[in-house]
Amino acid sequence: MERTPAGPRRRVAVVEDGELVEMHFDTTARRALVGNIYKGKVETVLPGMGAAFVNVGEKKALFLSEHEINDPLLTAKRFEPRKGHAPIQEVLRSGDAVVIQVRREGVGKKNPQGTTKISLPGRYWVYLPTEDRVGISRRAGDRDTATRLRQVAYELKGQKEGLIGRTAAFGAPREDLERDFRHLQAMWKEVQKLAENASPPRLLHEPLDLTRTLIRDRFLE
């Protein structure tokens, strides 16, 4: 840990065979919210802005745009996803409970932004439990690698869930890819279980911090 003008900063070094190969920095001056998943309560719906504010128990409510409403919510309100426009006032009402994730920190007086399109990053995949799609990192080394990874993704995922292949997935054994996927699926099921019994506002999930992410990505088999 070191002191900087911006506040405390954590340094994490990766050493291999006695040599420094990577150095990572993580600012800890304030608690980050991005990636957190909550069961929130809709405070206000603003049709003119096409948005709502959702109380998640933090200092500021999350700003939720109508473009960040997931397909299951739209379907539940009898809207066909990706077919026309769904006014937010017809999808959400003040007092509604909603599972929401922080997608962007608040800056200055602006509220943090939320989304109901949940994403859970793992070592090899980003799991999308509410979106039916597959994506591959743009850093794919070649077309054959990307095609193979895309095929694995379609074989693993169900009809109403999605996967994005991360760079680390290129060349990874099939069993490792499946293990990571099953882990993320189980993580989402735990979030759902907590949400069923929780009264909003309630924190349901926090992502790994820098140190634990590095341990997962580099050292855990």
Score class of each variant (00 low, 15 high):
Pro173Met: 13
Lys189Gly: 11
Pro173Tyr: 14
Glu190Met: 10
Gly135Asn: 00
Glu161Thr: 05
Leu128Asp: 08
Thr167Arg: 00
Gly165Arg: 06
Gln185Ala: 08
Gly171His: 06
Ala97Cys: 11
Tyr124Ser: 05
Arg174Ala: 07
Thr145Lys: 14
Phe181Leu: 01
Arg179Phe: 01
Thr145Ala: 15
Leu194Pro: 03
Asp180Phe: 01
Gly165Lys: 07
Gly122Gln: 08
Arg148Pro: 01
Thr145Gln: 14
Asp176Gln: 10
Arg150Met: 13
Asp96Leu: 11
Arg138Ile: 11
Gly95Trp: 08
Glu196Asp: 11
Tyr154Glu: 15
Glu155Thr: 03
Leu156Arg: 06
Arg93Cys: 12
Gly135Arg: 01
Gln101Lys: 11
Asp96Asn: 12
Pro87Glu: 12
Gly171Phe: 08
Glu90Gln: 12
Phe181Cys: 00
Thr145Pro: 01
Glu178His: 06
Gly106Val: 15
Lys193Cys: 04
Asp132Gly: 02
Val126Met: 04
Asp176Gly: 00
Thr130Glu: 14
Glu190Leu: 12
Ala186Thr: 12
Gly162Thr: 07
Val99Gln: 04
Ala168Asn: 03
Val91Trp: 08
Arg123Cys: 07
Val134Thr: 12
Val99Trp: 04
Tyr127Pro: 04
Gly108Thr: 12
Arg166Trp: 06
Leu128Thr: 05
Pro129Tyr: 04
Ala140Gly: 09
Arg182Val: 02
Glu190His: 09
Ile88Gly: 00
Val152Gly: 03
Lys117Ile: 14
Asp180Pro: 02
Tyr127Asp: 13
Asp180Met: 03
Pro121His: 01
Tyr154Arg: 15
Pro200Trp: 10
Ala153Met: 11
Gly171Met: 09
Ala140Thr: 08
Lys110Ser: 11
Leu128Arg: 02
Trp125Asp: 00
Arg174Tyr: 15
Leu184Asn: 03
Glu131Ile: 05
Arg138Tyr: 09
Gln113Val: 07
Ala86Glu: 14
Arg138Val: 10
Ile100Gln: 07
Glu131Val: 06
Gln185Trp: 13
Tyr154Ala: 06
Asp96Thr: 12
Gly84Tyr: 13
Lys110Ala: 10
Val107Tyr: 09
Glu190Ala: 13
Pro129Arg: 03
Arg104Gln: 15
Leu149Val: 10
Lys110Asn: 12
Ala140Ser: 09
Leu163Tyr: 04
Arg150Cys: 08
Ala195Trp: 11
Ser119Leu: 05
Arg166Ser: 05
Val98Glu: 03
Gln159His: 05
Lys117Arg: 15
Arg174Leu: 13
Leu149Lys: 09
Leu163Thr: 02
Thr130Val: 08
Trp188Gly: 10
Lys189Asn: 15
Ala146Glu: 15
Gly171Asp: 11
Pro87Met: 13
Ile88Met: 02
Ala172Met: 08
Val99Asp: 02
Glu175Phe: 03
Val91Arg: 13
Arg139Asn: 13
Pro201Asn: 12
His183Asp: 09
Thr116Lys: 07
Thr116Cys: 13
Ala172His: 06
